[in-house]
Every structure is written in structure tokens, then in C-alpha cells.
Design a protein around this nucleic acid. Sequence first.
DNA 1: CGTGGTGGTCAACGCTTGTTGGCATCAACC
DNA 2: GGTTGATGCCAACAAGCGTTGACCACCACG
Lengths: 192, 192
Amino acid sequence: MEDDATTPPPRRSDATRAAILRAARERFAADGYERATIRAVARDAGIDPSMVMRYFGNKEGLFAAASEIDLRLPELTGVPPEETGARLVRHFLERWEGDETLNAMLRVGVTNPAGADRLHSVFRDQVAPAVASVCPDREQAPMRAALLASQVLGMAVSRYVLKLPPVVALTHEEIVNWLGPTVQRYLTAPEP
Amino acid sequence: MEDDATTPPPRRSDATRAAILRAARERFAADGYERATIRAVARDAGIDPSMVMRYFGNKEGLFAAASEIDLRLPELTGVPPEETGARLVRHFLERWEGDETLNAMLRVGVTNPAGADRLHSVFRDQVAPAVASVCPDREQAPMRAALLASQVLGMAVSRYVLKLPPVVALTHEEIVNWLGPTVQRYLTAPEP
DNA sequence: CGTGGTGGTCAACGCTTGTTGGCATCAACC
DNA sequence: GGTTGATGCCAACAAGCGTTGACCACCACG
């Protein structure tokens, strides 16, 4: 079979598509959904606004395409139980600083229903299962994932979105050392 | 002096002013800055959009007037040191559910610079001093306040803004019991 | 009675937004 | 070499936005 369905033939427009997506992620991350205009994205990508429409249908479609998220959560089953907290905190820190998409999602999720939905799925499909794999009681997994999310999202919001000065001043080591035990407790400690 | 500068005579328009502010807080809380339109606020308040302009100058002025925040943080110096964490968490929970302004600030602060500024001042003028009053080492106060903020804001974002289902499902008691020790540790524990 | 301020509406402005359709250009294929 | 489809730009649309100024109704006070 010469026609592989999973990898369609490369089109000449693939570069443009990619440029649009890159610009869109930047704009969504910096400005949120409403202030990230299609015109600005097109300008950043060096093309006409109508091209954005042709390739992604409308603004919602552009956002959907630009906001695919993979947290790349590490396999936790092999990790020594007392290290999972610090390991996860460090992973989230690096992930957040290496992928603008995450900031875009956070900014958009707060004011736009579609963005919030996307965050719901990320939580349901990636965070919750990972937590379940290290959770003593499977029934408690959603609750423990919720607690984890509250601490991790809070750090992300105050550090990368609001940029509260004393939060920005923290080093990676400080954050891992302080938040690690918290996350650890949320994941595995018996109910308080 | 018959003209008391601190309490100007009540005007007939005070009711309208209050109605506008109430509507504005609701809209800002529900939609964020950009999607909360002056026209919608005016409609909710039952008056003409131009009245909003007359009373508050422009949209930024309206937001400034509608976003005055008082966290009403309790005096912590008299509280037994081991209870401050739970006490604070409970206070924030009740405060957040009783005052739409807080949600408005959070939603706006994430996409609008003016909103972020407002949150910075609340942190600097209200949270940081309260933390300093129970902090073993004064120099560490900003850092400890930062950690507190990361956990409290995270709970607020995931529960009241994003409404992640497992976070919404938590009871007040569960939240206090889980987050209380975390906050306690952030405030008073020796560095990890 | 008149007069002036106060509370309020109405219609319009200039601008930006998402979105659309028509026209040029270029590459590829029969 | 001409046809065809993909790629791109340009100009325009309708709608919604913040904002403005002209105009009306009321109420108090001389």
C-alpha cells in the first residue's frame, strides 16, 4: 500500500500551517483568547488573515489545533514512592517553561469555555490516570488528582501568568523542596 | 464646617451607581475583562450604556471601581500556631464563595494587565503583612506568602474558575483538612 | 414662575473584529 | 502547452465594541 493513511503526503502548505500554529500559540499564551486576534496571528506568521480561515475554519478551530497538549507525564510505577512528589513537581516546572502551549491553555481556560473544556480533558485523560497508578486506594484517585492539580495549577498561575514577584523569585530547587512533600502527601498519605 | 469631606451628601444617583457596580462585578466574574461589555453591564443594571461612562469615565475606570478587594484576613497573632493553616484555608473558602469580586479579579487578572496589577497589590498589602505576623523569620515572609498564594490561588482557580469536577466535589471539610497542613507548613515550618 | 443642575435616553461616530468571495500566481500533470 | 487545483493576497462585509454629544424630564430653589 503506497498510500499510508496515517502519514498523508506532505503538502506545500505545511510550512505555512506550522507558522500559523506557532504564532497562534504565542499569541494565545501572551494575550488569552479574546485579545489574540486572527489578524495578529496572521501578521506574526507573515501571511494573510484569510489563510488562517482557509486552513482552520474559524477562530475556534485555530484554537483547537493550537492547543493540543501532552503533559508527557513520566511513568511513576517504577519510581520510589517517596520521590514521586518531587519528581512530579520538577517535571511540571520544566514542562511549563518549555512549552508555551501550557501557558496558552491556562490563560484561555480561565476566560473561554472551550479552553476550560480542554483543560478538563487533560486532567481526565492524563493527570487522573497517572495519579491512579500510584494511589493506594483507587477510589480516592480523583480526589488526590484534584489536590495535586490545585497545587500545581496554583504555582503555574502565580508564577507564569500573574507573575507575583516573590513567586517568580523562587528557584527551581526551592519550589521542588517545598511543593514536593505537599504533592507527595496529596498522592499517598492516609486521609488527614 | 457643614461640608464633611469624608461623607459627601447622598445623591439620588447612588442607587444607580450601586446597580452598575453590582452588574459589573457579576459580568467581570463570569466573563473576564474583554467579554464583559459595557453594554451588557448597562443592560443588567437597567440603564443606558452612556450612564456607565458618565459615572466611571471609561471601562478601565469601571473595572477599577468594581474591583476593590478586602480579603478581611483575620488577626493571626492570637491564634494557636498549629491552627493558623486550617483557619486561613477556611477563611479563604468562605471569602471566595461570599464575594464575587474575588472571582472577577482572578478571571480578569489572568488576561488583563490592570487586573494583574490589582492582584499584585492585594498580595503585597494584605497577604504578605498577615503572613509576616506569624512568620518565624521576617526575611522569609515574602517567600512563605508566595507559597501560601500558590496553594490558595490554585484551589480557587481549579474550583471556582475552571470548575474541575473532582475539585468541585470536595467538601469544605476535606479541603480544610488537606490544605490546612500544607499552608501551616508553608508558613511556619523550617526550610525543607 | 423661571432657571439651572441632576439623572437619564437616543442616535450616532469611528474602530476593530471574525469572516467571505473574487482574483492573481504557481506547480503539476495529460 | 493548456488545464487544473492548490496557494496566496486584496477588498469588502456585517456585527459588535467603547465612546460621544445632543436632547429630554424632573426636581429644587430664587
